[in-house]
Design a protein around this nucleic acid. Structure first.
Length: 434
RNA sequence: GUGAGCAUAGCUCAGUUGGUUAGAGCGUCGGAUUGUGGUUCCGAAGGUCGAGGGUUCGAUCCCCUCUGUUCACCCCA
C-alpha cells in the first residue's frame, strides 16, 4: 500500500468531478455571456517565457523541466510548467499580431506552483481566466469586475467582496512613506495589516527604515476607510501626481462597474490591498469571501507592460482569474454542493440470460430516444440489480422478463414514487420524464 | 524556504499505564423460498497498528531516522 499521490495533487472521483464540471460550466456561461472566446495553450512553456514576469517570490515557485539527455543529467532546465494563464496569453498575443483587438479570451486550465500545500492551496490547480487585450479603456477593467461578480453570483455566492486598488496608488503610497525604503517592502508589510494588526505593521516598517514622519504619512493613508468615491477623494489628498492618476482611473472604473450591475456592497476601494505579481501596472483587485477564511477566491488587474516584454510592441491588457479549488473549498464548507447523482438516468436490467438480447434492444432504444441509459453488466438476481440501481442513485429501472418480451414491452420503475408501469418499447423513452 | 501537529481496516475513529486471538460505526460483498430497491435482521471478507532502526524477556504503544499528511508563516488562486 505504499502508493501515494504527488504532494499537492489530487484525484477527482466522479462525485467531485461532476461538481467541478458543473462549476466550470457556470463560470464559462458567464464568460461567454460577455463575449469572451476560448483559448488553449500548452501545459509547459519555454523557461524564458515565464521567468522575469512574476517577481522574486513567484519565480521561486515555477516548476522547471530538466533538459532531455546530457544537459538534464547536469541539472540544466529549458522548459517550465505554466505558473498562470496570463503570461501564456501574453505570449500568444505577441505571436499573433494579426489578432483583432480588443481580444477577449477565456481559459480554464490547470497551472502548477511548487508551493507548500495547505488548506485551499495545491501544487496543481485550475484557474478560470477572462482577459481583455488591446484596450486601455476603463470599460475593460470594469467588465472584468462585472464578470467576476456575475460568476460568483451564478455559483450562488452572496458573501463575497471585491477589493479594488491601483498599482499607482500603492507606489505613490510607498513613496510618500519614504523614498529611501523599497516600495515592495512597504507593500508587503502593509498587506499583512489585517493579519498582524496596526502595531506590528508599524514595528516592522520602522525596522525596515521608515522614520516617524513617513510612518505618520503612511498611516494617514491606510486609515482612510475602505469605501467608494469618498475613499478615493481622501486618497487624492495624500498622494503625489502618479497616485492621483490611479485615483482618477479608479473613480471611473468604480462608476462603470456599478453601472454594469456590480452590487455596490460587493465592491470596495481598499487602500491596503497589495498584489504581489510584478506585471500589474494599473487597477488591481482581489475577491474574498467573508465566511470561511481562505485567502482569495479570485484576483486580477491591469498589466499594460507584459505583452510588450515579448513583442516590443506595448499592448495593454486587463484580466480576472478565479481559483477553481478555492471556490469549491468554500462551496463545500458552506454546504453549497448539490446532491450526488449518477450520470445515467435509467438502469436496464438483464432479467435472465434468455432476455439479454431483448435488454440490449431496450437500452439501444432508450439511447436513441435521448435517455442516458446504463446496462447492468453482470449476471445477478433482479434484486441485486435493483439494489445496485438504488445505491448508485438511478431514478429509473427498466426491466423485461419473458412476458414483456413477448408483448414487445418494457416495465419502467420510478424510484421516486415507487410506482412502475409497463409500456410498449416505442413509448419507453417518452414515458421517462425526468 | 520556516515552524508545529498527526500517521491503527476502503472511510471516521476507539484501544493497550509495553504482555497471549487489535475493536466499533459506516462502506463493501453474501443471505433472509418462485420476477422487485430504499428500512430491518443474519453472516463474511478486510489490518506485518506508515517504513526502517533502537531500548526491552516482550513494542502498535517508549526513543531515533525517514516518508507521508495536516495546519500555520511566507506568498498566492
Amino acid at each position: 500500500m505504499a502508493v501515494h499521490l504527488a504532494k499537492g495533487t489530487r484525484d477527482f472521483l466522479p462525485p467531485q468531478m461532476r461538481h467541478r464540471l458543473a462549476v466550470m460550466d457556470k463560470v464559462r456561461a458567464v464568460f461567454e455571456r460577455y463575449g469572451f472566446e476560448p483559448l488553449g495553450t500548452p501545459a509547459f512553456e519555454r523557461e524564458e517565457t515565464l521567468t522575469g514576469k512574476y517577481g522574486d517570490e513567484g519565480e521561486k515557485l515555477i516548476y522547471r523541466i530538466l533538459k532531455r539527455g546530457e544537459g538534464g543529467r547536469e541539472g540544466d532546465t529549458d522548459l517550465a510548467l505554466r505558473y498562470d494563464l496570463t503570461v501564456p496569453l501574453a505570449r500568444v498575443v505577441a505571436m499573433n499580431q494579426d489578432l483583432r483587438l480588443p481580444f477577449k479570451r477565456w481559459q480554464m486550465a490547470p497551472v502548477w506552483r511548487a508551493d507548500r500545500p495547505q488548506r485551499g492551496r495545491f501544487r496543481e490547480f485550475y484557474q478560470c481566466d477572462a482577459d481583455i487585450v488591446g484596450t486601455t479603456s476603463p470599460l475593460a477593467d470594469a467588465e472584468c469586475l462585472a464578470v467576476c461578480s456575475d460568476s460568483l453570483t451564478a455559483l450562488g455566492f452572496t458573501n463575497y467582496v471585491i477589493h479594488l486598488n491601483d498599482r499607482r496608488i500603492l507606489r505613490s503610497m510607498a513613496r510618500m512613506a519614504g523614498a529611501h525604503v523599497r516600495e515592495t517592502t512597504v507593500l508587503t508589510v502593509v498587506d499583512k495589516l489585517d493579519k498582524i494588526g496596526a502595531d506590528a505593521v508599524s514595528a516592522e516598517l520602522r525596522e525596515a527604515g521608515l522614520d516617524d514622519e513617513g510612518l505618520a504619512r503612511l498611516w494617514s493613508i491606510l486609515n482612510i476607510p475602505a469605501g467608494h468615491h469618498d475613499t478615493l477623494d481622501k486618497l487624492a489628498e495624500h498622494l503625489d501626481d502618479e497616485g492621483r492618476v490611479g485615483v482618477t482611473v479608479l473613480h471611473e472604473v468604480l462608476d462603470l462597474a456599478l453601472a454594469m450591475g456590480v452590487p455596490a456592497e460587493r465592491l470596495v476601494v481598499d487602500p491596503t490591498l497589495a498584489r504581489g505579481l510584478d506585471y500589474y501596472t494599473g487597477p488591481v483587485f482581489e475577491t474574498v469571501v467573508t465566511e470561511p477564511k481562505i485567502g482569495s477566491v479570485s484576483g486580477g488587474g491591469r498589466y499594460d507592460g507584459l505583452i510588450g516584454m515579448f513583442s516590443g510592441q506595448p499592448i495593454p491588457a486587463v484580466g480576472v482569474s478565479l481559483g477553481l479549488e478555492r471556490l469549491i473549498t468554500v462551496m463545500e464548507e458552506l454546504g453549497m454542493v448539490g446532491a450526488n447523482t449518477t450520470t445515467a438516468d435509467v438502469l436496464v436490467t438483464i432479467h435472465a440470460p434468455e432476455q439479454r438480447a431483448y435488454a440490449l434492444k431496450i437500452a439501444a432504444t432508450l439511447r436513441v430516444g435521448g435517455i442516458r441509459t446504463e446496462l447492468f453488466l453482470e449476471d445477478k438476481k433482479l434484486k441485486a440489480q435493483l439494489k445496485y440501481a438504488n445505491a448508485r442513485g438511478f431514478r429509473w429501472v427498466a426491466f423485461a422478463g419473458p412476458d414483456e418480451e413477448a408483448a414487445g414491452a418494457v416495465t419502467l420503475k420510478d424510484f421516486v414514487g415507487g410506482v412502475q408501469r409497463t409500456v410498449s418499447l416505442q413509448d419507453a423513452a417518452s414515458s421517462i420524464d425526468l
